[in-house]
Amino acid sequence: MCLAIPMTVKKIEGSKAIVESMGVEKAVDIALTPDVKVNDKVIVHAGFIIEILDPEAAREIEATWDEYTTLLNQEQK
């Protein structure tokens, strides 16, 4: 229902942040995430940052899934 994409914060200027993804830059509003910092990965929807990505959680999740798939692929073989 809601198209939102991950982008990286390059600059913060007042109520706006310049975010970037794949070489594309866009000025977005930071009112919903006032704690946002430069280099944060964020989720952008309709010109607003709606949430900040948690890199620690992302790493843990990846590790878990790698373990899971390796295990299952072994089982299936």
Binding site: I5, S21, M22, G23, V24, K26, V44
Partner: peptide, 11 residues
């Protein structure tokens, strides 16, 4: 497809 094109398309 260039990254920039993917980026705009996603946004």
């Amino acid at each position: 497809i260039k990254d920039e094109v993917r980026g705009v398309a996603e946004i």
